[in-house]
């Protein structure tokens, strides 16, 4: 019996780099039956697997879905949640929703940005910390809210957050030193 068409297509076009993460993306593509209208869902999967959307990944998706690369990039760049640069080791997202804003989220962003010398939306030069802002994470009762590496931190002052990040980085430094020594 012949293999289903979708399997054949995936085999023909498997990523030549041999990067196993592409296999995960392939699985998602198969589940989506290579339907073009699943592009946004697949971009989510790709970003989950790779951490960000590189040109390579975008072109791969375009080929698999038989879409022009311009369309894939056009869609990906339209939505805020997709990112094209690899983020740092830690991601610190400050909520800038109205409730958080009213309770001083702007100060949290500004002071954190100054403390770690990183503009909002970017990553520190050493690649350890990314500072993002979010539209609203929907925890308004706890404003101002910060999401640090996926954990929601409630009622944050700039001092709280800076201390939290410093502590974490210092602990990592200590652990690295111990390993080296």
């Amino acid at each position: 019996m012949a293999a289903p068409a979708t399997d054949r297509r995936a085999q023909q076009d498997a990523h030549p780099s041999g990067d196993e993460r592409f296999a995960l993306l392939d699985k998602a593509l198969k589940r989506a039956r290579f339907e073009q209208d699943q592009l946004v869902e697949l971009l989510h999967t790709a970003q989950e697997v790779f951490g960000h959307l590189s040109d390579d990944v975008l072109i791969y998706l375009a080929r698999q879905l038989r879409l022009p690369p311009s369309r894939v990039l056009g869609v990906a760049s339209f939505y805020h949640l997709f990112t094209f640069e690899p983020p740092g080791d830690h991601i610190c997202t400050v909520c800038m929703g109205t409730a958080c804003y009213v309770k001083g989220a702007e100060d949290v962003v500004r002071e954190t940005s100054e403390a770690f010398d990183v503009p909002a939306g970017e990553t520190t030069d050493d690649g350890r910390l990314t500072l993002w802002t979010a539209r609203c994470v929907g925890s308004c009762g706890l404003a101002p809210v910060v999401v640090f590496d996926g954990t929601v931190l409630a009622k944050q002052t700039p001092q709280d957050l800076i201390a939290h990040v410093r502590e974490l980085l210092a602990a990592e430094d200590a652990a690295a030193e111990e390993e080296a020594g």
Partner: peptide
């Protein structure tokens, strides 16, 4: 969705569902 406020508008939402 993927973080676009305008997708709350119904025709934009439909475009988003269509990928």
């Amino acid at each position: 969705g993927a973080g676009a406020f305008v997708c709350g508008e119904e025709t934009a939402l439909l475009a988003s569902i269509e990928g």
